[in-house]
Design a protein around this nucleic acid. Sequence first.
DNA 1: AACTAACTTTACTCATGAGTCAAGTTTCAT
DNA 2: ATGAAACTTGACTCATGAGTAAAGTTAGTT
Lengths: 214, 214
Amino acid sequence: MAVAGKSQTKPAAADSDPFDRSDLKERRRKAVIRAAASLFSRKGFHNTSMDDVAAELSVSKPTLYNYFPTKQKLLYEFHMAALDDGEAALAYAQSAGKNGHQKLVAMCRRNMEDTLSGQGPCAFVADVDSLPAEDRAKVVTRRDRISAGVRDIIEEGNRDGSLKKLDPSLGTLFVTSVLNWIPVWYRPDGERSPEEIVTAFLDMFQTGLARKRI
Amino acid sequence: MAVAGKSQTKPAAADSDPFDRSDLKERRRKAVIRAAASLFSRKGFHNTSMDDVAAELSVSKPTLYNYFPTKQKLLYEFHMAALDDGEAALAYAQSAGKNGHQKLVAMCRRNMEDTLSGQGPCAFVADVDSLPAEDRAKVVTRRDRISAGVRDIIEEGNRDGSLKKLDPSLGTLFVTSVLNWIPVWYRPDGERSPEEIVTAFLDMFQTGLARKRI
DNA sequence: AACTAACTTTACTCATGAGTCAAGTTTCAT
DNA sequence: ATGAAACTTGACTCATGAGTAAAGTTAGTT
């Protein structure tokens, strides 16, 4: 802590009153998540020690354990956040689109915006295999449900004619590949703005890369 | 080793004469790679111990170290194989296509076929962050060159009119997302054949998912 | 001021897993 | 058969890093 103030709280989010002590614990928990997300996405889950996370926050390791019981639960948190995001995007799509095509676009746009905002969940490929069996099962189940939701949308577009006839499962894989890979390469300080990325990707999702046939 | 034969060689590949001892060392090295690839892709690099790899081959851990100096060099091997694949696909594209569009399709087809054959490199997302700095640098350099190659192809298609006008960097990311994610989800015993996958994906790359405008 | 509850830290423990060593074992040439 | 080279193994070492215990510190209360 640089400055000696009367009520010195942790670094804290810029968007919360640092003098408000009421939800201190919750805000510190969030800070741990942010620090871990940053490190995990840069170096990977296994190449980041809890000491690293602690150092990032200028705090000691045991302090972290006041907010998370295990390192794996921290990882679990990221999985859950990512899944929340996916589900939210699907729910939004249902209300925002009138046919399969519109719903698919809405879902992709929403998901990309969440991912690119950084505000959203986390910016790294969550490592399912490092979760304890029970948590992994929960993640896989939710994940499958989300895939099924995307597939339903594609099937709907398939029926109502707004999307071309194609294997809905492969269409889902195609779309989720692109969405899932974004956290791998996206850097907020990169050359392309989130808006540019979203626009370009939505265009490619819809009409591909080939020259339009008139 | 189940059966007591006079010349008992390791499990060995089905496509090589197990009585030929000339290149035994090289074939065993390959066997180690195959075993590791299988485990790494199923459980991840960090969740697989060298003892696991040894057990998969019914061999002891020190034996592995006759074929690889460190676990990280084993990982490096996979990276190199994947990069070889990417470069081969690019080189092939140059000879197989007359314009940007054709080259892009050739490159994608070739890369997917390599990945899906399983014969090719490896079926897991190679973890760059776990490589020692020097090896990581080599991988990143080659990787960047491959990306640049894809971008060149898209730019060519951009100029010659065979591809639509779009940001070549974002086009590259879009395409490589899909290609890179395949090893994550593909299982040889899955419902879709490699041919189906290649066909469907090439179609989506070219004209997207939306209904064609007549 | 004195007390308490909450939080933080230093200094551990302990399991895991990479890599090694020295002692077998097998293969092949003479 | 015998000796040497190559290969394999059980039994280690040693570093790393997750998680903990107990003592110390701080904030807020009476």
